[in-house]
Write a protein that binds this DNA or RNA. Structure first.
Length: 651
DNA sequence: AGCACGCCGACT
DNA sequence: GTCGGCGTGCTC
């Protein structure tokens, strides 16, 4: 074979048994265009089928014993898969027992021929690099700058207040910190990747970036762009030019020349959870990419996620003590225990101050999302019920019957309340309470602005008014809110999730950070360590306590988890394949939907590679084993073995 | 997945 | 003899 005549191709298929290179010979007519990184079409299985794939590398010879087929087509001459992104996709997929092509589907947008043609003809000018940017806000002088220069992994608690940009626009101070950090990398000729949970955060970050770098250097990859715009930005990112790429969770896979910084804002936000297979959290992908590229990593938030706390404790990520941050003035107003959820009242002190503040400027009222979620609690004291064996959530099975643990399947027949010693369970309904109309009556002659998930309001001006927002949908107010009321805390805490406390602290902290410096923030009806963590603004300490508790229970992120869903026999085999590995234990299996079973494998971080390898092998085995027909029934179902690593909803 | 190959029952 | 049924196996 002449040099470079063998193309190693990754076929674009979700099948685990196809997740490997297939070798094809490169016919003469593609010698010029068949470069690594281009999309190709290849024959798969004698003649018939043509599959899409990525030409990952060229070689002189093939290890394959049989005769090589020829490449069918080179889709476009523009290389889209950068070597660095390939290495990342492969590593991320291996870590989660997933397909590299699934990761590449997140990483590379679909092609727009027209856009590509224009771009090839005239790629556009990236604009000048910035001059020396100002000091990075909210951190010790030069500290983050130095960290970026030497490729350090850093965690920084954001300055919890809004700041006014030179343009007059108000954004969270965090956005200024990240924007200037990216400008520093850019001034040194390095690219940055900035990951935000949603477009509202992205808007703030873009506004902050506009103040310090040429807009041509900033590439957006958000879901609100048209496909063509997105493809154009992606093509720009493949160029050998330092850029700032900003976008949602999949932006962590963006091509970026000479990557100098990956920043993630608010890594605890559930919007960063990746729903698409193999479901790898961008925080984990960023950690892999940071190691591979040697770039810096900046994890910023108002609260510390338990995952980041773990990374700080093991010394992998450096905790940067914030400097010059304003601390919100939190006033916990625990009130008399309310007999029924739904009857929370605004305490009088908060009431008075809110009515005063609303004459001066905007006042924020944070409420829970509407809708009800049933959960099991102690009939006597209302403490949410947890499994005595493993601490998992108890629920009544959808099919009816006795309540049991959703995690390990243990029946809750002998349940006893750890708080009041009660033995009876009851279903309580958790819903949002206070409607805007009620609040409107309470604040007569006041402008009321509503912001919720369906109709979010991005920003409000500095005029007097009451802003009622569901958690996570709070608008930014010019100059900050004159007062903040966090209302439905009690109700939010009753959600059926092990992470409620963490989520609540995050929602409250993020809303508190929208207050003007010195403005009162009332946390209504919540006491205890969470309220203390918020009012002292020591979220990291709370995360440390939480992590210690999860270590004791062997819950993530103290350990990693993989859930295995399959038929009874297939689960048993898969569990058998990993049980003997050091640092592994197994919960379940418990019944899952569709007559399948689900087991949870828990494992130490050190056991991650062998666990993923074994489960992957098991997936391939199940996928290729003969499909046996069910006796007497013609319907043959394809065999399933679903494996999901590090699912944030497990437990 | 999706398609070709192959080894047993009803057919010209 | 051989057409085609579906189980089985493989994809460079």
């Amino acid at each position: 074979m002449p040099g470079g005549a063998v193309a190693r191709v990754l076929v674009d298929s979700p099948l685990p048994q196809l997740d490997q290179f297939f070798d094809y010979s490169v016919p003469e007519r593609f010698r010029a265009s068949a470069r690594p990184g281009v999309r190709v079409r290849v024959p798969l299985r004698t003649g018939g089928r043509i599959a899409d794939g990525w030409l990952v590398e060229l070689a002189d010879t093939s290890e394959y014993g049989g005769r090589l087929s020829e490449l069918e087509d080179v889709v476009s001459e523009v290389p889209l898969l950068m070597p660095e992104v390939w290495a990342l996709a492969r590593a991320v997929a291996d870590r989660a027992a997933g397909n590299a092509s699934d990761v590449l589907r997140l990483a590379i947008p679909s092609r727009y021929v027209r856009v590509e043609r224009t771009w090839v003809a005239a790629p556009g000018d990236p604009g000048p690099l910035p001059d020396t940017p100002p000091a990075i806000h909210g951190a010790p002088a030069g500290r983050v700058e130095a960290g970026i220069a030497r490729g350090e992994r850093m965690s920084l608690s954001a300055d919890p207040r809004p700041l006014r940009l030179p343009t007059g626009e108000w954004v969270g101070a965090w956005a200024v910190t990240i924007a200037v950090a990216a400008a520093h990398a850019l001034a040194a000729g390095r690219s940055s990747i900035l990951v935000v949970p949603d477009y509202r955060d992205q808007g703030q970050l873009e506004a902050a970036l506009a103040a310090s770098v040429d807009p041509r250097r900033v590439l957006r990859t958000d879901a609100r762009q048209s496909g063509g715009e997105r493809y154009r930005a992606f093509l720009d990112a493949t160029r050998d030019e330092a850029r700032i790429v900003i976008g949602n969770r999949s932006t962590v896979y963006a091509p970026a020349a000479r990557l100098g910084l990956i920043a993630i804002w608010d890594d605890g936000d559930a919007l960063l959870n990746e729903p698409l297979a193999p479901g790898v959290h961008p925080r984990d992908a960023a950690l892999v990419r940071q190691e591979q590229s040697g770039s810096a990593l900046l994890l910023m938030a108002h609260t510390r996620s338990v995952e980041v706390e773990r990374l700080v404790e093991i010394g992998w990520v450096h905790d940067i003590a914030p400097v010059g941050s304003a601390k919100p003035r939190i006033i916990p107003t625990e009130q008399q225990a309310t007999p029924e959820p739904g009857s929370a009242r605004i305490p009088s002190a908060a009431w008075r101050q809110a009515q005063e503040a609303v004459r001066e400027g905007p006042v924020l009222v944070q409420v829970a999302r509407p809708g009800n979620a049933p959960l099991l609690a102690c009939d006597r004291c209302r403490e949410p019920a947890r499994c005595a064996a493993c601490g998992g959530t108890l629920a009544v099975p959808r099919s009816g019957g006795d309540p049991g643990c959703v995690l390990c399947g243990t029946r809750a027949s002998a349940w006893r309340c750890p708080v009041c010693d009660g033995t009876k369970l009851r279903v309580v309904t958790v819903g949002a309470s206070r409607t805007a109309e009620e609040l409107g009556r309470a604040f007569p002659r006041t402008r009321i602005i509503l912001s919720d998930g369906e109709r979010p309001v991005l920003k409000v001006d500095a005029e007097p008014g009451l802003v009622v927002a569901t958690r996570g949908a709070e608008p930014i107010a010019d100059g900050g809110y004159r007062a903040v009321l966090l209302l439905d805390g009690e109700r939010m805490l009753l959600r059926e999730s092990l992470r409620v406390a963490e989520d609540c602290l995050r929602w409250w902290s993020n809303a508190s950070a929208l207050a003007a410096p010195g403005a009162p923030v009332f946390l209504v009806g919540v006491a205890g360590t969470l309220a203390t963590a918020l009012s002292t603004w020591r979220q990291a300490e709370w995360a440390a306590t939480e992590l210690a508790a999860r270590r004791a229970l062997r819950f993530p992120p103290a350990v990693r988890v993989a859930s295995i869903t399959a038929s009874n026999a297939a689960v048993a085999r898969a569990v058998e394949a990993v049980r003997a590995i050091e640092g592994v234990d197994v919960l379940g299996p418990a019944p899952a939907d569709d007559g399948l079973e689900r087991a949870i494998v828990r494992f130490d971080y050190a056991a991650g590679a062998p666990v993923a390898r074994e489960l992957r092998a098991e997936m391939i085995r199940v996928a290729t084993e003969r499909r046996r027909p069910v006796a007497g029934r013609p319907a043959r179902r394809p065999p399933v073995l679903r494996v999901r690593f590090d699912d944030p909803d497990v437990p």
